[in-house]
Computed example of a mutant assay.
Amino acid sequence: MPTPYTPEQAAPDREIETLHEFDRVIAATGSLSGLRIQSVDLSSRTNVLAEADTEGTVFLGCRMPVEAAARAQAGGALVFPPVPHLPFNPYRAALYTPEELFHGLSDGYPQTPDARSYAWFQHTRSDGDVFSSMLRAVHDDSVSDALDELLTGARVVGVMGGHALQRGSEAYSGAARLGRTLARSGLTVATGGGPGAMEAANLGAYAAPFDDGMLSKALALLADAPSFAPSVGDWARAAFAVTDGWPDGGHSVGIPTWFYGHEPPNPFARHIAKYFVNAVREDGLLARSNAGVVFLPGASGTVQEVFDNATPNYYESRGVPTPMVLVGRRHWTDELPAWPLLRALARERPMASRIALVDEVDEVPAALAQLA
């Protein structure tokens, strides 16, 4: 009889995510009992599976012959097989890379996994099929698990801002310089992963290991494709020209969503946690920004993020409030007056000493340090 599931069995050290890890465990113990084996191709390990103890093992999206799966189940395992004909892997063990999401870009953006996943989402999001909604939930939970593994021990600063900010503008250049400064200070830059201000901050983090001239040259190259509209392909190819010209740039995180399908992920975030459910994505991005959040000028989405972050700070539901720095005095007081409301909410609360409004992006690092 299979061993009943207990929470202790799901500890991170029980997760096997590569064939190398699988072989190492087998060599050391000869047993798979109680492990979670996630999205590993076991097609060449049929004999091993036949001999190993699989009591309480969970196989998530692992490729294996039918007879091997049946034998594992007979030994007490749960087997969740790969789902055919999907443009994404719901059981994925790692975050996306830009190259993975934009694979096949030479044949046109609609042929890429990113575009095909959005098309699948559009087709299934309102069809009422519980199987489709289950696949989305499993995928997003797998992405969250991979994101937590990546960011363990990291000091993360979130940079929020609008997708409409165009390459070639001074504001875009300023956001890129900000990302570079934050990354050089040892922080992990995390953004919403899309175009505009988000891309600029990820670009800056990518440029951090290079001399200052690299960013200036990259900005000049990108200016020839200022926006993802009307051609995502031209916009993405310009970004890949930069990463090809300067390989091995700095790492940062992008956390985009297929909910906003018109926003492609930017290729400068070397780790991409892309979600189907926007609410999970929003909360996850802000919750993981443990070193503070910077809000560049933006519209509805950025305003939402300001108060999504303010709420747990107000109630202290995540402990000590995280620093919040709003950039652009006129924008946040006159055009979209989020600052007066934020300041009123913070009055006589611990978060009052953790919020700041600055005029320019160059003031952000000092403001973050003062609020820390």
Rank of each mutant, 00 (worst) to 15 (best):
A338S: 05
R237W: 08
Y172R: 02
F268K: 02
P7F: 01
A372R: 12
E17H: 09
G104W: 01
G174T: 07
I255Q: 11
P90G: 07
C62P: 09
R288D: 01
A356S: 15
E363Q: 12
E305I: 04
R136F: 10
T29R: 14
I26A: 03
V277W: 01
G34M: 06
A239R: 00
F276G: 05
P323I: 03
Y91A: 01
L86H: 04
Q111T: 14
P113E: 02
N309V: 02
A137I: 10
S43W: 10
R177T: 04
A77E: 05
W339M: 03
G194Y: 03
D211L: 07
S117T: 15
H163G: 08
V48K: 00
G30T: 07
D23T: 09
V303R: 07
T311E: 09
L105H: 00
D212Y: 00
G174S: 11
A197C: 14
W339L: 02
F268A: 06
L187Y: 15
V25N: 04
A52R: 03
V293F: 14
L35F: 09
R45M: 03
A69W: 06
L49K: 00
F307V: 03
A223D: 12
T57K: 04
V83N: 02
R180N: 08
F276E: 05
A27S: 11
G174C: 08
S31M: 02
T18I: 05
R184Q: 13
T181I: 08
I272G: 07
G168N: 11
G161V: 11
A367D: 04
A291T: 08
H251F: 08
M198C: 07
R155A: 11
L32G: 00
R281I: 09
G108S: 15
L222H: 00
M198S: 15
Q38M: 09
M351N: 13
M351V: 12
Y5H: 13
R347D: 15
A225L: 04
P323M: 09
L147I: 10
A175L: 04
G245V: 03
T124W: 03
V189R: 01
S252W: 07
D107H: 15
N290F: 03
A369H: 08
R330H: 15
V40Y: 11
A279G: 06
G30Q: 03
F121K: 00
T46P: 00
G249H: 05
A338Q: 04
G153W: 14
P337E: 04
